[in-house]
Write a protein that binds this DNA or RNA. Structure first.
Lengths: 257, 257
DNA sequence: CGGCGACTTGAAACGTGTCAATTAGCGTGG
DNA sequence: CCACGCTAATTGACACGTTTCAAGTCGCCG
């Protein structure tokens, strides 16, 4: 499927890249992989990865504003969120970050993120030097197209969230969040059809307070809505996994309008 | 102030460009002006403007999804909004477009906008050919930087709107919307300090239903909140103009958290 | 065993939506 | 010139969805 790097070259410059990246190579927009292969094709070296990778435990902050003056993080493994906290302590999650995601495409051009990136599960990530990644993107039209596409998707998701928060009820918001995550996971091969039915199963490490922060609701209300979904046989959550038992019905809830 | 195009060259290819653009040249990110001067500098011709300009009356739709397969609109004059309508008829305004604004930076790379652009006042706009504008941006680093900056601002505003809709009350949302517009107008020289006080005055063509569509509220509630602002001596609205009477107090309302 | 965080559930309070009646303004056509 | 119809805005009463507060369960880990 993918043209692996020659072990000899990789091992010489940055040990352990290949095995670690095995888990996110399925994602189309895989910056690590793309950057590494492009470098190799152009015989550039060293590879623009500052370190093999960082690993942080769940709930830890991956980067703050000041950490990003010249670093562009890419999630290799695990779930993260970009979060903004208001002065009264309430939080809003702007987006969830899944393996293969660039934290934000605007980071390629500016170093002033207004939000934190926080690990939800244990997260392994890599940081690229902005200047390096930027140069790479300009030299390789293929990478630039990927960037443009990532940028469009990022804006699309933001716009959808605006519509959700502005015009939809709690039930719709939560159902749509789950369906969106399911779709993104499926793209990465991280969600699987369960048993013979049309049900879908996926890892689901989110706490209810994450859902609340993302949908502009309170954790208490999230709990009530999820209970209702469960009572109606739409989903099942257990043991950090979620199953959509009735995809058609669930989509109907999500698209009440 | 600005280096005007030679009348001889302009008149030969596209009549009337110069006088019409007089009103939006003050805005830093002026695509018409930038594109035209760049073309001239590079001795490219014809200028990548398909027609002198279009003018549509208030409330008219400027472009739909299918109109944008190869056209990138720029607002020359007047106010517009990008709007999405849900199947039950409710509407969400994603952003207001002021003179000099590119409708959306993602339009440079893809032709699938999920929203309409609707005129609020009478609007004069220009459409550029995507391929042309795109090529131009790549050839001129200065233009590319402008694009990147526009992209960052666009995303910042979207993120702020997400926070507003997710975590702020009606009063905060409305106050912040007005303050944001005041700031953007001020950047364009379209808002002026009023009398000796610190008050700010500006054109304000928005109907209350526009405010409602942008803040995720109902027109009725918007009316109540604006009445309250007026009672408290924070703002005055009359005759399509808005004055912020007590900027400090108004900002306090907007940043309750 | 005790403590803590995640979740659940119910009751009451609050903010915003819905519905309805009314007024003002504005352009159109008789 | 006035009557008309239309849209925008205002205001009050009430309904609904969500939040807040509080109490309690469960599982996990020290």
């Amino acid at each position: 499927m993918n043209a692996r790097l020659s072990p000899a070259i990789v091992e010489a410059s940055i040990p352990h890249v290949q095995p670690e990246c095995g888990t996110c190579q399925s994602h189309e927009l895989n910056w690590c992989h793309a950057a590494l292969t492009q470098c190799r094709a152009a015989l550039i070296e060293p590879v623009p990865v500052d370190q093999p990778s960082h690993t942080v435990p769940a709930r830890r902050i991956i980067c703050r504003e000041q950490d990003l003056h010249d670093a562009v993080p890419v999630i290799c493994n695990g779930w993260a969120a970009s979060v903004v906290t208001l002065s009264d302590g309430s939080r809003q999650i702007l987006s969830f970050l899944l393996p293969g995601d660039l934290v934000s495409t605007t980071l390629l051009f500016e170093s002033r993120p207004n939000c934190l990136v926080e690990a939800i599960t244990e997260v392994r990530f890599r940081t690229f030097k902005r200047s390096y990644l930027k140069a790479l993107v300009f030299e390789h039209p293929h990478l630039f197209d990927k960037l443009a596409q990532a940028w469009i998707e990022e804006k699309d998701r933001a716009d959808q969230l605006i519509i959700d928060l502005g015009r939809r009820t709690a039930d719709e918001r939560i159902a749509r969040l789950i369906l969106n995550l399911a779709q993104r996971l499926a793209q990465r091969g991280m969600a699987a059809p369960a048993c013979a039915t049309s049900a879908m199963e996926m890892d689901f490490p989110l706490r209810q307070h994450h859902i609340a922060d993302a949908t502009g609701l309170t954790p208490v209300h999230v709990s009530k809505v999820l209970s209702e979904f469960r009572r109606d046989g739409l989903i099942r959550i257990s043991d950090r996994a979620l199953t959509i038992l009735d995809p058609a019905g669930f989509r109907r809830v999500a698209q009440a309008r």
